[in-house]
């Protein structure tokens, strides 16, 4: 839950009075609030936690982190939509570890 994932800002829009953006996380695109990173522009990379960009980073860092998180299997879990997250929970036995990483017999 504490992980922040890097992504590339593809579009910035105003939704009422908040600054929203479409951010691409290695192929998965999500709507993200950009209010906390006023310096970020289209094409920039930022790290995003639960739908909020919290810090601008450079491209190389972003790509490396994405690759590492993907290798660790963290990317899918973080970016899963409601249905996927529920499916994951449905497959695991009651009171299993919530992130689905449990491989116990």
């Amino acid at each position: 839950m504490c992980l922040a994932i890097p992504g590339r800002v593809e579009e910035i829009t105003l939704d009422g009075d908040i600054r929203m953006g479409r951010v691409n996380f290695g192929g998965v695109v999500k709507r993200v609030c950009l209010d906390y990173v006023p310096e970020v522009e289209v094409g920039d990379y930022t790290i995003v936690h639960v739908g909020f960009a919290i810090s601008k980073i450079d491209e190389q860092t972003a790509q490396q982190t994405l690759a590492d998180f993907r290798a660790m299997g963290l990317l899918d879990a973080e970016l899963a939509g409601e249905e996927k997250a529920f499916a994951r929970a449905a497959q695991s036995p009651p009171s299993s570890c919530p992130d689905g990483s449990c491989t116990n017999p």
């Binding site: 036995p93 009171s95 299993s96 570890c97 919530p98 992130d99 689905g100 990483s101 449990c102 116990n104």
Partner: peptide
């Protein structure tokens, strides 16, 4: 165990007990 956790640190996948177990 993660399937029958007795405590907080086994409940969560991020917990130290679950990490050791998994």
């Amino acid at each position: 165990t993660p399937r029958h956790p007795l405590g907080a640190t086994m409940v969560s996948g991020e917990g130290a007990c679950a990490a050791y177990y998994n």
